[in-house]
Design a protein around this nucleic acid. Structure first.
Lengths: 192, 192
DNA sequence: GTCTATATAATGATAGAC
DNA sequence: GTCTATCATTATATAGAC
């Protein structure tokens, strides 16, 4: 039997790129095949469940990346603020300064498919829980930390959307800066 | 010749609903046909350019809705704050409290198609300019008003994404509240 | 302006050789 | 584990009757 052309993790990484650029419906097997360098049959060998299994496997692979990017910093001895800085630095890199789309957002249009919607929601929750946990670590009441986490993720996702629609990267840079300043802050807004 | 079953504006409204739920690639002619009650050939009679023309026509139709929702309030005599309240009230209704997706976001995955990307960017700009103009009306320097407009639209889009992925509507409600409080404010963030 | 019927291409998915 | 060849289905799009 022929040796694997590329490691399975590399296959997943390339599939991820396609799904996050084109979404689920837009990611045709032709494109997925070209991106991985594997023929259709090879893809079906790795993912007997077809395109849906490719998408769910990619979501599981993303969960691993999220754990690296968001949960690894949580387990260090650094201050909550430093941990947040580490998380946001990785996100800035992953989204290439706001020029690359988010897989979670691109899959939302296909959340109606049960095999997508379930894992998708779990990936959202994984991210939210990381932010929430960081807030709790910083001494913020859990309910508040949870709301802040949702708002922070919303800021990031929305900045990527506006960036994709307008080509403006500064929105994303400001979003990261704002999350940096507000997620853990004892803040109040003062009108003058 | 048979009479039109429904006015063209109603056709556009129904096409809009499909595109904003499923995105461009996910909106098949079968679904578009069913949603409008028109056969394929009737759709091609109205939109000779096929699905791409349906999408661009829907974007143009959305521009009209945006002008109603965002520019009509601008031309009233009310205070900037009242105008903002009117805008956000319409948005809250249009997105059904955060349960309906935004067409602009759902089309971003297909922005690579030139016929989509151009009009899409123009629709984003239309929205941003409305928010920016309101800020300028309120006495905010244009550059600041522009940034605030981008951030506000980002907050709204991101809240819809998080809402779609998690099923949580409160994110959207808080986003509207935050835009209400920050778009026109003389604000500063105070850490205590 | 709408319909039925059809053309043509692309899609997701399989079978079987190596 | 990968390939070529092919399947059935769905997709977009057209032709022509009424």
């Amino acid at each position: 039997m022929p040796a694997a052309l590329i490691p399975k993790e590399e296959v997943l990484a390339r599939l991820l790129e396609v799904f996050r650029e084109y979404g689920y419906e837009g990611a045709s097997l032709a494109v997925l095949s070209e991106a991985t360098g594997l023929g259709r049959s090879s893809l079906y060998h790795h993912f007997p469940g077809g395109k849906e299994e490719m998408a769910t496997s990619v979501l599981a692979y993303l969960d691993g990346l999220l754990k690296q990017a968001l949960y690894a910093p949580l387990e260090t001895m650094a201050s909550p603020n430093k941990k947040l800085g580490a998380m946001l630095a990785v996100l800035d890199e992953v989204y290439d300064g706001g020029t690359k789309a988010c897989l979670l957002e691109r899959l939302c249009a296909s959340a109606g498919r049960p095999v997508i919607g379930g894992p998708l929601r779990r990936s959202f929750e994984l991210w939210l829980t990381a932010f929430e946990t960081l807030g709790v670590d910083a001494g913020i009441p859990r309910a508040v930390a949870r709301s802040r986490a949702e708002d922070a993720l919303g800021r990031i996702e929305g900045a990527l959307v506006v960036g994709a629609g307008t080509g403006n990267k500064r929105v994303f840079a400001r979003a990261l800066k704002d999350v940096r300043a507000t997620l853990l802050a004892n803040k109040e807004t003062v009108a003058s």
